[in-house]
Amino acid sequence: MSRPAPLEAAAKFIKSGRIEFYREEETFRRSGESLPTHKRPFAESEYALNPSVRGKYRLAYITRNSLYRIHSNHSNNLWMNELEDYRPKVFLNPTDAAERGIKDGDLVELYNDRGRVRGQAVLDPGQGPGIAIFEQGWWSRYLEGDSYNALTYPFIKPTNEVYFVPGIWAPNTAWNEALCDARKVGER
């Protein structure tokens, strides 16, 4: 069960003892995040790293949790594999797929300058456009030796580095801050 962080641990950075919407640490002020704010996706990550990818890769790469695993645990559990047909899947909005000539069930590749991962195309009309979803945790033995994390880049948000309280406030990779595109590589 998930519980709130213990008060004494949180007290290190929540000085008022309450929920704080305003932060005045130097890093927050410099990033313009003293108050909650919306920032355009990829502006400070992918586009800052390499401006040429703007327009080249048009899908946000999301690696979500799967119903059938706890991260990568149970990746080799054959009952779980049976429940998901032993098939890593790439979830796409039908419009994005149609633009790329991808049909339901095709073998597709998500790729960017850093790497690639392959899976069976699943067209989900309930999924927003501009997003490609891959379920995290598949071992590379199911991915022709590829890794879904080959596409991500270890972007770390500066505000994450202000404090170091393990498990509560610590630097972590912004996994979903990655661009990719999709292409069909085969039929199933």
Binding site: L78, N81, D85
Partner: peptide, 9 residues
């Protein structure tokens, strides 16, 4: 049938 790598349903 146990058929690793192939859909069971």
């Amino acid at each position: 049938q146990f058929r690793p790598g192939e859909p069971v349903f």
